[in-house]
Design a protein around this nucleic acid. Sequence first.
RNA 1: CCAGUUGACCGGGUGGCCGCUCCCGUUCAGGGAUUUUCCCUGAAGGGGGGAGGAAAGUCCGGGCUCCACGGAAACACGGUGCCGGAUAACGUCCGGCGGGGGCGACCCCAGGGAAAGUGCCACAGAAAGCAGACUACCUCCUGCGGCUUUUUUGAAGCGGCAGGGGGAAAAGGUGAAAGGGUGCGGUAAGAGCGCACCGCGGUGCUGGCAACAGGACCGGCAUGGUAAACCCCACCGGGAGCAAGACCAAAUAGGGAUGACGCGGGGGCAACCCCGGCCUUGUUUUCGGGCCAGUCAUCCGGGUUGGUUGCACGAGGCGUCAGAGCAAUCUGCGUCCCAGAUGAAUGGUCACCACGCAGCGGGAGACCGCUGCCCUACAGAACCCGGCUUACAGGUCAACUGGCCUG
Length: 118
Amino acid sequence: MRRLKKRFQFLNAARGERISGRFFVLQRVRVEQEDFGVGFTVTKRMGNSAERNRIKRRLRAAVMACKGCFADRHDYVLIGKREVLNAPFAELVQRLGSTLQRMERRPPPADRPASPNS
RNA sequence: CCAGUUGACCGGGUGGCCGCUCCCGUUCAGGGAUUUUCCCUGAAGGGGGGAGGAAAGUCCGGGCUCCACGGAAACACGGUGCCGGAUAACGUCCGGCGGGGGCGACCCCAGGGAAAGUGCCACAGAAAGCAGACUACCUCCUGCGGCUUUUUUGAAGCGGCAGGGGGAAAAGGUGAAAGGGUGCGGUAAGAGCGCACCGCGGUGCUGGCAACAGGACCGGCAUGGUAAACCCCACCGGGAGCAAGACCAAAUAGGGAUGACGCGGGGGCAACCCCGGCCUUGUUUUCGGGCCAGUCAUCCGGGUUGGUUGCACGAGGCGUCAGAGCAAUCUGCGUCCCAGAUGAAUGGUCACCACGCAGCGGGAGACCGCUGCCCUACAGAACCCGGCUUACAGGUCAACUGGCCUG
C-alpha cells in the first residue's frame, strides 16, 4: 500500500469515480502501478488542527482494518467529514467496507486516460 | 470548620492487538570500488527516543541568514515614559516611591510635561474658561398701599409690592468639574478681609543613590479638566524573513560579472579643464565609493520542479547542591542528552481501573452498592530562545488573612 503525498496525485484522483457518504467522500482512479494507493483530505472547515489530525488518524486506522477490500492498480482518496470524530469505530469500518464493495460492483467507467503518478 | 488572598504544580493510568517516524547494532540481497577493510541503497528482525502549559494568537525582544561596503547632519515615521536594579535584549521581571480600592492577607494604575502654543468640554445649568449673576442677601433713592406710637394736620418707626443705582460672590439649584477647604472672628450683607489647621506656590534645611518623605520660613491664593486630542521633552529603532540562505540534479528563455580594446557632452595638438546622469536599503543634503557607448574572450547567476542542507549541545534541562543578594538574578560544582515531521510522524482500537456527572437502593450521617454517560477541558512542534496575551474539564500542595467553635 502506498501513501499519496503529491498534489497532482490528488488532482488526478478527483477526476475518477466518486461515492459520498455520511463520514467521507471516496474517490478512485486507475493508475499504472502494481499496488493501490490511499490519500486523505480534510479541509480547514472541518475543525482546528488537532481535530483534523484525529479525523485523518481514525480514517487511516479504518483503512488498515479493511485493507483487503481495495483493488490494485488504483488510487483512492478519502475526504473526511466532522462526523468521523464522534462515530463508533465499528460503524466507521463497516461503512468503509460497504462503500468499497459498492464501488467494486459498479460497471467500470469509460476508460479515461489517467496520467502515471511517479 | 467556613470564607478568602497569593504562589507553585499535575493535567488520566494499566494491559492486549494493529500501525507511523528518527537513531544504533545484527543478518540477508543488490550496486560501487582495489581482495579484506570501506561507501551507497533496500528488506527482515532486535533495542532505544518520540508534543504543550499554553506547542495557540503572532503582540514585543533577541540569536541566525540575506539585502554590492560605509561616515556625518537635518527631517519624517514608529515605539517607550515615576525611581533603582536584573538581563543578550525587551513594552518583561524584581525591589521601592506616589495615587486608588479592601476590615485584612492583598490587589489595581498608559504614573513625564496643562504658567510654549492650538483644540475640545455633550446634557443640565444664569454662567464651562472669562469672567459673569437666575433665585435669594444687604443698602440707598423714587412711586403706591398697610400697620403701630403720638394730641389732629404732621412726625417717627415697622413691614410689603414695583422700578432704578450700588455692594457682595457666602446660601439654593445644575453638573464629572463653578476661580482653594473647614472653623472662628469680622461685616449693612459678605469676601483670605484677618487668624488657626489643611491644601497650593516659592526658598533653603534634614534623610535617601534616586523617585520621594519630613519639618522650617515666606507668600494671602494667582494656575479647572483633557496629552489612549494635536503637541513639547527625554530615550530607543535600517529592511526583510528558514518559503531566510547554501548546494545538487533535470529541463528552459537570454540577464549579469571579470579582463582587454575602449568609454556621456563641450573645449584643447596634448597633458588636462569645464558641464552632466544613475546607484549607494525611510527621505533630503553632504563627504567618500561605484557605474555610464560598443566589440571580443572567459565565466556565472535568476525563475520552475524534485532532493540534500540550514536542523537541534542550546542565553539547554535537572539538583531537598554550595556561595552572593530582600528579590529578580548571578557565580561555581555535579549530572543528563531529552521530538525532528515536510499531504506533515509522535497514534488507532478493545477491556479494566481511577476521577467526575446523573439515576436507583440502603443508612441518622460520613458513606456504601448497582446502572448509564463523557471514557474527558483547551488544544498538535514546523529554525531556535526570553517574555506578554488569550483558551482550559477536573485536581493537588504550601504560606498568609478574616470569622466561628473547642482546649
